[in-house]
Amino acid sequence: MRNALRRFGRTHEARLLLVTVALMIFLSFATKNFFTIQNALDLLTSYAFPGMMAAGLVVVLVAGGLDISFTAVASIAQYLAVLAANHYGIGWLGLFGIALAVGTALGLLNALLVTGLRIASIIVTIAMLNVYYGLLMFVTGGDTINSLPDWFANGLSWVVAFDSHQNPYILNMQMIGLVLAFIMTWLLLNRTSVGRQLRALGGNPEAAKRVGFNVLRLNMVAYGYMGFMAGLASLVQAQVAQTVMPNALVGRELDVLAAVVLGGASLFGGVGTVLGTILGLALLAILQNGLILLGVASFWTECFTGIVFLVAVSTIAWERRRQRLAIRRVIGTAA
């Protein structure tokens, strides 16, 4: 146990946790509203969408790939699902069924292309982002769906308690979706054989083939799971927005990537954890929330995000370089 703790202390996640907690403590004292249940609930609700996307993306990164197209996939999934719900009485099951099926199918298409074309996954998925998004905008003419079915617009939210001013604490679909997404990803990566195969593939693709892991099938799991998460997240987002705009999500893909990388996942594959992803996202969310609560004009949020991100990736790179040099020394003097 102590051994495990010491091991954890040396990880990127531990340092990230330290920074995040320090920031939380600072904000709790510096602002009136940060350390409140209401603020926490608000944060969970508004960061549910990027969080669920991050939960999907970390799986792709662990498997040694990269997906840029998921915002377009989510846009298509939510558009089709809500359109169908408005026209036919398909209910919750139908709504989620359509969104998840569409998302997964497009993810699988990505997997086929990435594996078959043998060019960098970033290039394939950039191209597919344009294909998906272009076709969606072309077919819909860019029209927004303004009215959601009532049962969906107001559904799945429960008042669980009241604060001293009788404001309700609400448990909603966003929170459930977010927690579910992270639990599912954690189970996939750490508790299933396929998750371990994905990690092995990301760590050494050549060896994975030799051991007999099926690369196409694993890519289909990774990109399909990303698509599945995009489908799920798309509905969660649609409910927050209360409209479906075909161009609302595209453009946020790099923000999600930033959160996952901040959480320690490597673009070279094989490295990345659910805890890290949660912390990476939490750090960005708390930073942006804190700036607003501190009264910094919201125009400066992006600038601070950029600084924090640059500092973080520089530290990660520096740390990895140090470790590499240390290992080389150990090997060099092993005699």
Binding site: S193, R196, A200, G203, N204, V211, G270
Partner: peptide, 17 residues
């Protein structure tokens, strides 16, 4: 043909995956 990002135990018992 080892997996640098997996533990020694997982590498040895990789067939179990």
């Amino acid at each position: 043909s080892l997996f640098p990002n997996l533990t020694v135990a997982e590498n040895i018992a990789v067939e179990r995956h």
